[in-house]
């Protein structure tokens, strides 16, 4: 290679690198999250919800085309439940609040509905290397762009609530029926509860809240004092999961 070419390559390389550093800097400055205008929250009254009916789970999974673990229509081997997809599911008091429960605690083994907490300060969005997941400024929903997700699963390591699922298998194979109104997903991306952002846009309540026949779920904006969630929280003592971590969960449990 003669000297001219070599110098050209050097200058081109340095210019490219410099431009890229500028690009990263601009991305960093332009990406400061603002304060959420709304603070959407879900309040679950565990005095009413005994976790004995799967209504909210069935409604959510139907709404969002969440694949079943054991689909009778699927010819291949069943998906191991540890590799399944969960948006809203049943844990127990002893599981969800395991750091404050011991063998003498009542209701320890009772089922408890859990889902993404849509934290005020979510660690999952902080770690994402492609900005594929973020907290929406308009209402505080923690959402995912499933076309942007590279499937590195850093967000799953960062979530202290185990709320994120990964598509270990082709989710379309395990769907009994596809609801056309919501996109199905592909292998290799992360997904989770989206607080029914698509329904809220149409003025509807989240599917789980609507499906709950026990009226155990109250949903709304905590910045609005008259929202059902605010009213429910004022009426009784409620706790959140792992408050000491500073994530600010927006799913509350009335005891």
């Amino acid at each position: 290679m003669d000297r001219g070419k070599r110098n050209f390559l050097k200058i081109a390389g340095l210019t490219g690198a410099g431009a890229y550093v500028g690009f990263v800097g601009a991305e960093a400055i332009g990406n400061k999250p603002g304060k959420a205008k709304k603070k959407l929250a879900l309040v679950i009254d565990t005095r009413k919800c005994k976790g004995d009916c799967p209504d909210c789970i069935a409604a959510c999974h139907r709404e969002h085309n969440v694949p079943e673990e054991h689909n009778p229509n699927f010819k291949g081997p069943p998906v191991r439940s540890s590799q399944g997809i969960k948006w809203i599911w049943l844990s127990t008091f002893g599981g969800a609040f395991h750091e404050q429960v011991n063998e003498h605690t009542g209701r320890r083994k009772d089922p408890l509905v859990v889902l993404c907490n849509h934290c005020d300060n979510p660690p999952c969005t902080r770690v994402c290397p492609t900005k594929a997941t973020w907290k929406r400024e308009s209402d505080g929903i923690v959402t995912i762009d499933m076309h942007r997700c590279i499937g590195c699963r850093f967000c799953m390591a960062a979530c202290p609530y185990g709320s994120r699922s990964f598509n270990f298998h082709d989710p379309r194979k395990n769907l009994k029926a596809v609801r056309p109104g919501f996109p199905t997903r592909t292998i290799g991306v992360v997904e989770k509860c989206n607080f029914c952002a698509e329904r809220l846009g149409e003025g509807l309540l989240p599917a789980c809240v609507e499906a709950c026949t026990k009226k155990a779920m109250s949903f709304g904006d905590l910045k609005d004092k008259d929202s059902p969630a605010s009213v429910a929280l004022r009426s009784a003592y409620a706790i959140t999961r792992k408050p000491a971590l500073g994530t600010g969960p927006e799913v509350y449990y009335i005891l």
Partner: peptide, 28 residues
Amino acid sequence: IVVDMGRPDRVVYVFLHPTPNSIMFWDT
């Protein structure tokens, strides 16, 4: 890292959408 990715076809997104608050970006 690549074989661990769910969508290795999107690996270039790490550079197209640089995210300085992600440690993964800095590791790359």
